[in-house]
Amino acid sequence: MTAAVLSDTRDFSRSTETRHVWQQTIAMSRRSVLAIVRQPALVIPSLVFPLFFAALGSSSFSKATQLPGFPKVDSFLALTLAASVLQGVLFGSVNGGAALAVDIETGFFDRLLASPTSRISILVGRLAGSAMFGAAQALFFTFVMIAFGVNVRAGVGGVIVIAIAGGLIGMSIGGFMAAMALRTGSAEAVQGIFPLLFVSMFFSSAFFPRETMQGVYRSIANWNPMSHLYEGMRDLVISGWSVGAVAKALLIPVAIGFISIPLALMALRRRLRAV
């Protein structure tokens, strides 16, 4: 009887604990999203800059679409949709990581640790916020481009996959940013990673197809996962639905997440040990 009561109590407390972790994670995610929405100065550049580059590119390079090696497209803008998503989400994830570092700098992170908050929810909440913002950015860019005449050949399903991919990229790159924030506790250090991400984008096929590149540059672009991720999303826009395109768009960010999220968890554990 006593054993049964004890086991029931244990089950009850475990389920209560799990429920609390979920509630806390949802609350932390909500806080993370609100923190982004309430700071338009952070959000606007991540939306405006990719669109500015897309507009510049479509005016500067539209004649290049006739060259050999370029995929058949109605307009250069169709090629830039996926690049805009990638660029915007990278900007956004840096901001998410920087916000976590600001929490550490201002002492809010310590106050969270002093409260009976689940440790994991602090990180998962932040990553979920980045994922939601990434998906919202992807939808924003897709709708703006559709308004300017881009036809997403994979239809509504394609738009949904692009939005999910945006969310997954936000989460996986957000993992690197969170790891950096937790390890250094400095927003400046997190912002300092942005040039690296930008470089990785330039050394990929995000702006021009790999087929038009030469030499070492082409080899780097061939190896760069960003190229394949971009091409997955791009093919959904310009060629239509295909298993290969969906797999590239969704599985590459998942694979990146398998590296970045454990790194973030390790950084969290390290910081908790240091407190």
């Binding site: 390079f61 004649k63 330039f202 050394f203 702006f207 021009f208 038009t212 590149m213 540059y217």
Partner: peptide, 10 residues
């Protein structure tokens, strides 16, 4: 110059 190499072919 690496990314936009093809533009010189226009």
């Amino acid at each position: 110059s690496g990314t936009f190499f093809a533009i010189t072919k226009v």
